[in-house]
Design a protein around this nucleic acid. Structure first.
Lengths: 234, 234
DNA sequence: CGTAGCCTTGAAGGTGATCAATGTTTGTGG
DNA sequence: CCACAAACATTGATCACCTTCAAGGCTACG
C-alpha cells in the first residue's frame, strides 16, 4: 500500500464523478484537504471492520468490496464500490466512528483517502454535497432492498439480480453487456449468501445456454432479456 | 384515515424525540410548516410503493411497517418504524420522488405528515438536522447489514437477531424485555424471509423452554442471554 | 516448481418450504 | 349481542432446493 499526496491531476479526475458535478475548483481543493491517493494491489485491505475510522475514501479506479463476517466466520459481501463511489463517508459525522465493514481491493485499485477532520470542516458545510452523499446512501439502500425482496426466490433469481444491479446505471439495456467488476464465483456466492458450488452449477448452465459468457474473470451478459426474466421469475 | 393540523401539543411531542434534541421552538415550527397529524387504524396504509411521494412522515405513536412485494407477489418487511422514526424522508431531496416502499400501520398509530416543500425549504437549511437524518439512515443501514450477515445462519438465528434488534436502543440488556411492537408470526416470517409455519415451530419451542413468552400479540424475552446465544450460533 | 487461489463435478443429506387440515381470536354488521 | 367472516396460530407429512463433503484439475505467481 503506497500513498501519494493529492495533485491537480487528481482534482481533474474527481471532476468527472457525478458527485462533484456542481462543485467548483476551489471547493474541490478544500474537500480534498490533506488527502492522499492510496494504491491497492489485488486483495489488499483498505480498512478493517471495527477499527477506528479516521479516514473515509473515494474510489478513483479499480473496485473495492465491502464485507463483513458473520458470528460463525462466514464472509458476506455487502456492496461493490466502483470508481466514484464513497466508502465510510456515512459514518464521518459520528463522534468517534469505527468502520462497520472491511474494504478489500478487487484487482489493482486506487482510492483517495480523506481525513475525518476534512469531512467535518469542509464537507458538512456544503449542503448540496451532503444531499448528494445522502442520495448515494439512499441508492445503496434501495439496491439492498431489491436484493432482500428476493430472499424467498430461487438462487438463480438472486444471481441474476446481482448481475443486473452491477451494470453501470448509465448503461442502456442491450445485449453483450460486460460486468464492470471482475468477480470470482466465490465473491458472487458471498454476495448472494450462497455456496460456490451452487453458483457454479447455475452459471455454467447459463453459459451452456448462451445467456452469459465468462473469460478471464470478466462476465458478459449475452442475453440480457433472459437474465432479467430469470431475475423476475418466481 | 383522519387528519388534523399541527398544534402546540404536537410540537411538544416532537421535542421528546432525539432527532430534535438540538432544535429550538422556532425552527421546530418551521420544520412542521403545513403539516398534519394522520390517524391510522390497524392495517391502514399510509403510502403505497411506486406512487408519487409528496409527503414524508414522522411516527408519533404506535408503529408502522415498511414493506415491499417481490416479483412473485411475496411480501417482504424491510423495517419497523417506532415512534420518532422517519418515513420516506430520505427521498425528499430527489426531483420528483416516488415511494420505494409501502407503509402500513401496526395497531392504531399516529404520524405527522409533512409536505416535500417544507423539507426542501426548511429541513435542507438545517445542517445539524440533515446530519441527524443521515445518521438515522446509517443506523438503519447497519441494522440491515447485521441481518444480512446472517443469511447463511439457521432460521433460529435470524429470528433471534430480529427480536434483539427490535428492542429499544435505550433499554439496557436484562431479562423480561418486552418487544415494543406487537408482531404477528406472519410479520416475523415476512421480515426474516421465511414461512409462518417455520416461525411457529421455532418460537413455540422457545416458549416451551422458557426463553420467550407471548400474550396478546406481545412478545417478551424472558431469557435474553439464551436468545443472544442463539443469534450468534453458527 | 510448489503453493495458493480458483473452477468444476458428483453424491449424500438437511433445513425449511409447501400443502392440508383444524383450532383460536378478532372484528364487523345485522 | 350474536353470528359470521377474516385474520391469526398450530401441527403433521412430504418434498425440493441448496449445502456440505470429497476429489480433482487449472492457472498464476513467488
Amino acid at each position: 500500500m503506497k500513498s501519494t499526496p493529492v495533485n491537480t491531476g487528481i482534482i481533474q479526475e474527481l471532476k468527472a464523478f457525478p458527485l462533484f458535478k456542481n462543485t467548483n475548483q476551489k471547493s474541490l481543493e478544500d474537500l480534498c484537504f490533506s488527502s492522499d491517493v492510496i494504491l491497492s494491489r489485488h486483495r489488499d485491505t483498505l480498512f478493517t471492520a471495527n477499527t477506528k475510522a479516521e479516514y473515509f475514501y473515494i474510489v478513483l479506479s479499480g473496485a473495492y468490496k465491502l464485507s463483513r463476517s458473520s458470528p460463525s466466520g462466514e464472509i458476506i459481501i455487502l456492496h461493490f464500490c466502483p470508481p466514484g463511489d464513497l466508502m465510510a463517508a456515512f459514518i464521518m459525522s459520528k463522534e468517534s466512528p469505527t468502520y462497520p465493514l472491511t474494504s478489500t481491493a478487487i484487482g489493482p485499485s486506487r482510492a483517495l483517502r480523506i481525513p475525518q477532520k476534512t469531512y467535518l470542516k469542509y464537507w458538512t458545510q456544503n449542503i448540496d454535497l451532503i444531499l448528494h452523499v445522502q442520495r448515494l446512501l439512499t441508492e445503496r439502500m434501495t439496491t439492498i432492498h431489491s436484493q432482500r425482496a428476493l430472499t424467498k426466490s430461487p438462487l438463480s433469481s438472486k444471481i441474476a439480480s446481482l448481475l443486473i444491479n452491477l451494470i453501470d446505471k448509465q448503461t442502456t439495456i442491450h445485449d453483450n453487456i460486460q460486468i464492470p467488476i471482475p468477480l470470482t464465483r466465490k465473491e458472487i456466492a458471498d454476495s448472494v449468501g450462497s455456496s460456490v458450488e451452487s453458483i457454479i452449477r447455475i452459471m455454467s448452465e447459463w453459459s451452456k445456454k448462451g445467456y452469459i459468457s465468462t473469460s478471464e474473470q470478466t462476465i458478459t451478459i449475452t442475453n440480457t432479456a433472459k437474465i432479467i426474466e430469470i431475475m423476475n421469475a418466481e
